[in-house]
Design a protein around this nucleic acid. Sequence first.
DNA 1: CCTGAAAAATTATTCGC
DNA 2: GCGAATAATTTTTCAGG
Lengths: 170, 170
Amino acid sequence: MPVQTVQANKIGVFGSMSVTLDAQDRKILAALTRNARIPVAELARQVGLSKTPVAARIRHLEEIGLITGYRAILSPLKLGLTHVTYVEVSMHDTREQALQQFNAAVRAIPEVEECYMIAGGCDYLIKVRSRDMADFRRILAEKISVLPHISNTSSHVSMEAVVEQNFRLD
Amino acid sequence: MPVQTVQANKIGVFGSMSVTLDAQDRKILAALTRNARIPVAELARQVGLSKTPVAARIRHLEEIGLITGYRAILSPLKLGLTHVTYVEVSMHDTREQALQQFNAAVRAIPEVEECYMIAGGCDYLIKVRSRDMADFRRILAEKISVLPHISNTSSHVSMEAVVEQNFRLD
DNA sequence: CCTGAAAAATTATTCGC
DNA sequence: GCGAATAATTTTTCAGG
């Protein structure tokens, strides 16, 4: 059975609670986080168990939704997507309906890599990945600035990626 | 032979520059980005080619460094890491040596998920993932605030993740 | 709940065309 | 680049501690 069936999310009160993991589960997750294609046999060796319990643990971690999937990681550099810009967005309407309309619209923009609603001054922080400054200008003008209920935006261009997509397991 | 070797480098002569991809390569990357464990046979079906060229294309995409790896994706929620905070960091020394010392130090903090050097007012933008506010306070006090050459920090707490780790292939 | 090995299924590779 | 046969790898199963 393909693994992506794991992504059947059970969204609800009980399905979204955090889970306690033992040291071996953490080793399994650390290894799968480094390499999604590691064989269970090799994983078992690293964890210090036999294949059977390791396979069962992986299956369980998938079923409870802790492992949401397995993905290939691409080089933004090789894709020509070297420019990263953070856009602060202020809203002129922060009522629930307006926020949900904004959320839906921002999710439809493929160039938006991340977006968080922020407490305090600016209302949203959007991370945009683009080819270059001209590409970003187009994205800002055609996609970001036309988002619903926006009051104004402020862009902050990255000069260097110091840490990109780091993980934390402990 | 894959097409991209014909017109290999778009810009410049260096091996780290961007690559031109045909529609089939993009389909392969899109599929592997959704599911790293998809069998070559299934991938071939989706792309509209047979297994042989698809396997060769994947191998090539790995060799040129466009596919950098395959990783399991974990649910921050299930791990109890629901709090995201962006920390703006200003430096009191922006000479090259100071920046490199800062970069090395920030890379050693596991709770830092991302860090970009920013043009303009604040010098760095750091994304921190924590269990809760108390956990963040500890990280800020013990790990962020003690980074070398820092002048001051300003924290922006996320209230909602609207988009998390979205990809762009086109 | 784990072990270890045999069995079964799946997947990748190698050919001639 | 195709398709089938081959070869390799990986997962699953099961009796036993």
